[in-house]
């Protein structure tokens, strides 16, 4: 801003770094613990003595963890694809058409964003139990669609709003159908946003705990957060392994977020996102 000295800026930068470090150190500690030997951790020293991937090797050799990894990948990928496939046409309709009930539908979709999973947990669990879908990935996938869909619709709508209508009109004149124009003109233009939305849905599903806890009890359909809990055997467990498992769950979320930050931050603010 105005007359601010360089010294002031540098000292504020230093304060920023210290504050940021303090905020992130709990997460950093998880990562560090995942790559240091167990004796290091139990010894209580702050600095690692050596760097090791033993904990990762150990948990990736455990069958339940591998099954959970596979299940989480299946659920996450299906959720990402379906969320995007549902959100894209909905966003397009909200952006380009005026039709009866448009505002109501928009409110309904966005409203689900504000509804925490816990608020619908009991009825959803009872319904899913009555149609016999407990302990299936199908049920989990279905509930996970609610995590990212509202924000996906909202973000994509914003991006479509920014595309000049004339581009599609030109395509319509050239004999393209409305859906053809969507596919050939709009989708390529907002590809980064579509990928961001898909990854976002994946990440939300990847770390989701409550629905998985409530719907899944059999080990062959457990997802990663439940498997991580399973590593916590009260009598013999390794902190290093738990932290390695935690890192595997946290990494996709952190990496994908840092990559797509620009696309996601606006959407986060617009929708108020479920944590």
């Amino acid at each position: 801003m105005r007359h601010r000295s360089a010294i002031r800026e540098v000292s504020l930068d230093l304060v920023t770094i210290v504050v940021l470090f303090l905020l992130l150190v709990p997460i950093l500690w998880v990562f560090v613990a995942s790559v240091r030997p167990e004796t290091d951790i139990t010894g209580g020293g702050l600095l690692p003595t050596r760097f090791t991937f033993d904990h990762y090797a150990a948990i990736l050799a455990k069958k339940p963890f591998l099954i959970a990894l596979k299940n989480s990948l299946i659920v996450g990928i299906v959720v990402a694809i379906v969320t995007t496939a549902l959100a894209m046409p909905a966003a397009y309709a909200l952006s380009r058409f005026t039709f009866g009930g448009r505002n109501f539908f928009a409110l309904l979709i966005l409203g689900t964003q504000m509804l925490p999973s816990l608020a619908v947990l009991v009825p959803l669990v009872v319904i899913i139990r009555q149609i016999g879908l407990t302990n299936t990935l199908t049920a989990l996938i279905f509930t996970h669609l609610a995590l990212g869909m509202p924000i996906a619709v909202w973000m994509l709508k914003g991006y479509i709003d920014a595309i000049p209508k004339e581009l599609e009109e030109a395509a319509l004149i050239d004999g393209c159908s409305r859906l053809g124009a969507l596919w050939r003109i709009v989708v390529p233009l907002i590809r980064p946003a579509i990928i961001a939305v898909g990854t976002f849905a994946f990440v939300l599903s990847w770390g989701e705990y409550l629905m998985a806890l409530a719907l899944i009890s059999k080990s062959d359909v457990k997802t990663l957060p439940l498997a991580l809990q399973g590593l916590f055997d009260p009598y013999s467990f390794s902190w290093g392994q738990v932290m390695a498992g935690g890192t595997i769950i946290a990494m996709p979320a952190i990496l994908l977020f840092l990559i797509f930050r620009r696309q996601l931050v606006g959407g986060l603010l617009a929708g108020g996102v479920k944590g």
Binding site: L24, G207, W239, V242, I249
Partner: peptide, 19 residues
């Protein structure tokens, strides 16, 4: 970078803090 606690799943933070 400050957003990391917000994007890290509860299950990781919960066990991390127990640790």
């Amino acid at each position: 970078l400050i957003l990391l606690p917000w994007v890290t799943p509860f299950i990781v933070l919960g066990f991390g803090w127990r640790f």
